[in-house]
Each structure stands twice: as C-alpha cells, then as structure tokens.
Design a protein around this nucleic acid. Structure first.
Lengths: 121, 121
DNA sequence: CTTGACCTTGGACCGTACTCCACTGTTTAG
DNA sequence: CTAAACAGTGGAGTACGGTCCAAGGTCAAG
C-alpha cells in the first residue's frame, strides 16, 4: 500500500504520515522505485494512533508503547501486561475527569461563579 | 498581589503569568512603580485555567470563555449553561476513554496484538 | 510521447504554550 | 549603604505536531 492510499484510509495527509515515519510511529519498506510501501496493518495502527492522541497521549508515548509491543510480540502474557498498564493510565485519566466533572456539576446547581472554581484545599 | 505571590499561589512561573497577561488570560492593574498588581480572584481563576487546559481547551478558548463570563457576570443561568457545555465535553472524553479501555480489556483476555486494534467498520 | 497523477527529498514555516536570558529598575533587611 | 530579593522589558529559544513548497523522479492512459 502506497502512501496516498494509506493517507486516505487513515484519514490524514501524506505529509503527516511521512512525519510519523520520521519519528518512528509507522514503518514501511521501500519499493524498487523508492516509493514507501506500507502493510495493511498500518491502517488500524494509524487509527489507533489518532485515538490515543485524542486521549492525551503524546506521539512519543504512543511510539514507545508501539515499540514495547514489537519487542515482545509473541508473548500473549507480555501483551496483556502492557494492555493492563494502559488501562490503568486510562482509569487514572477517567478519575481526573470525574473529579472535574463533579466540581462543575456543583457549580451548575449553585450558579457559583467561576472565580470560586478550583479552590481546593 | 504582586506577580511572585500569584505565581506561588497559582502554582506556575512568573513568566507563565506574564505570558498569560500578554494573551489576555489574566489582567491586573499596575502599581506606581510599574509592578503588576493582581486581585485575589486571580488565584482561583488561574487554577481554573489549569483545569480547563487539562480538559483540552486551548488558552484562546479559555480566554474567550472568560470574556463571555465577564460580559454576563451576574447571570447564574449563563454560567450554568457554560458549565453544562464543559460537562458535555468531559462526558464525551470519558466515553472515548471507556471505548478504548474496553478494546484494551478485550486484548488482555485474548492476548490479541495491537495491530488488530481500531479495526472498526 | 506527453499529460497528469502519483511519488521522492529537504527545508522553511506555522501555531501553541511556554521558558530562559540579559539587562535594568525597586524594594527591603541588616 | 549595600546586598539580596523582587520586579520590569524585549527577544531568543524550545518542544510538539504538523503543514507547505519547490524541484524533481515514476508510471499509466491516451
């Protein structure tokens, strides 16, 4: 799969994919003519990258997670550990959001002005 | 309140506060000697800025919301609307997280590698 | 054999959000 | 009176995440 098709499938620009390749987020082989050739798995992987990004993970973090996965690719147990770690990160993020949500919900009821927000301990 | 104390109270650097003033996120008067003088409300406001930021709002958005609030400062209802909007943003983010979490949880059980993640529709 | 769509590279540029620096002025404590 | 601790300014630099562009190579269709 060449870069244009991958870009279309992943919903991002060719430039972005080249940038991602540069920072190690995607890898592909080269055809004889120098064109990049990506495997079909690149499509779901890039979708995953977008998702993780909107969840607040930096490209560096995402790349690192990807490498960890590639380093222990055949151990289902190793994979499970990694997934569990990620889930913990997600749970922490969700807890933060829940706290903020509760704070805001209180203000909705009281009409308490913004200046009083975030006045914790 | 001078910039150093505000920085300490708000948990950010003086430079950051000067930067925020430059982009209109905080305003303060000036003392005779040229020093900035911030009102006490600047402290919770900056805490709020930090909060909103972690929710994914850009400084420009936060500044704009702040202006909207200053334009209708005595309407508890207007405030509630804004808070409700923010809560919706939070809920959307939490839902996304829950989705990713569920995806990952599935992989934990199956040991199915990441390349199969995000293979939607 | 040209046209157009695709690909390559390197490098410049952008917006966001700071962070650091040098140099200078002000205030406060001993 | 002096030294430290604070304040001011302007401007450069950083990190991240792209985005755009020019100059050129490749390939399939007409």
């Amino acid at each position: 799969m060449r870069i244009g098709e991958l870009a279309a499938q992943a919903g991002m620009s060719r430039d972005t994919i080249r940038f991602y390749e540069k920072v190690g987020l995607v890898t592909g082989r080269r055809l004889a003519n120098g064109y990049r050739d990506f495997p079909p798995e690149a499509v779901p992987w890039l979708h995953y990258v977008r998702t993780a990004q909107t969840l607040g993970f930096s490209l560096a973090e995402i790349a690192r997670h990807g490498e960890e996965l590639r380093e222990a690719p055949d151990s289902a147990q190793a994979l499970s550990v990694l997934f569990e770690q990620k889930i913990q990160v997600i749970d922490a993020r969700m807890a933060e959001l829940a706290t903020l949500r509760a704070e805001l919900a209180t203000r909705v009821d009281t009409g308490c002005p913004l200046r009083a927000i975030g006045r914790p301990s």
